[in-house]
């Protein structure tokens, strides 16, 4: 292990432990690490946008003849008008351009790419092959989708048939959320494993090179 690698590991270990120290209680070492983290993350954005947008998407293409890219460049610059109260409304133009475009893509993609295929996939034939398991699953899916949609439908009071279906919906939702909780636990532990493995294997392992 080279000296550079050793320094890298110790720097990583220091900041990892500094953040973990919050588990005991809030402390100055944690706060130092937290503020450095915020600064570095913001600085990362600057480096990234400088390279990937300003240089690669604006400056170089414009120098190569795509002069019209000055328009999105100006639209981007208009965003900063928000910092001056008198002209802050100008930033709405750029924002409206992005919002409108995203809305246009969404309107199509949500209906064409999600709602329709998901509804189609719910209309399953009971006797379409696959035996009893497939038929049972088809019933569970139809019942589950309808009762969940009704549970989240608040335009009418949940009484009568609507109330009964919503009640069935709660049972379905509880099972699904239980599964989701199980998966969430798994996710959080995996992240801890990553950090503990580093501390144990790399950091404590580096001590063996020192002593």
């Amino acid at each position: 292990m080279s000296a550079v690698e050793m320094i890298q590991i110790w720097v990583m270990a220091f900041f990892t432990l500094a953040i973990f120290s919050f588990l005991y209680k809030d402390n100055p070492v944690y706060r130092v690490a937290e503020h450095i983290f915020a600064g570095l993350s913001a600085g990362y954005y600057v480096g990234l946008i400088w390279k990937s947008v300003i240089i690669q998407q604006l400056w170089e293409p414009m120098m190569a003849g795509s002069w019209w890219l000055i328009i999105p460049g100006l639209l981007g610059a208009l965003m900063f008008a928000r910092f001056w109260e008198k002209i802050s409304w100008v930033s709405r133009i750029s924002l409206a351009f992005v919002m409108g475009n995203t809305a246009g893509i969404f309107l199509i993609s949500q209906l064409h790419g999600l709602v329709l295929p998901q509804i189609k996939a719910t209309m399953l034939p009971l006797g379409g092959g696959g035996g009893l398991t497939a038929a049972l699953l088809a019933i569970i899916i139809v019942l589950g989708v309808i009762s969940t949609l009704i549970y989240f439908y608040f335009s009418k009071e949940h009484k009568g048939a609507l109330g009964v279906t919503a009640k069935v919906g709660i049972w379905f939702i509880m099972i699904a959320f239980g599964a989701h909780f199980g998966y969430t636990v798994m996710a959080r532990i995996s992240l801890l494993i990553g950090r503990v493995y580093f501390l144990w294997n790399d950091w404590l392992g580096s001590l063996a090179h020192i002593f």
């Binding site: 893509i105 993609s109 949500q110 064409h112 790419g113 999600l114 295929p117």
Partner: peptide, 11 residues
């Protein structure tokens, strides 16, 4: 992931 499905896979 939702957009890879709803935009790219679907269209």
């Amino acid at each position: 992931v939702d957009y890879w499905i709803s935009i790219v896979n679907a269209q």
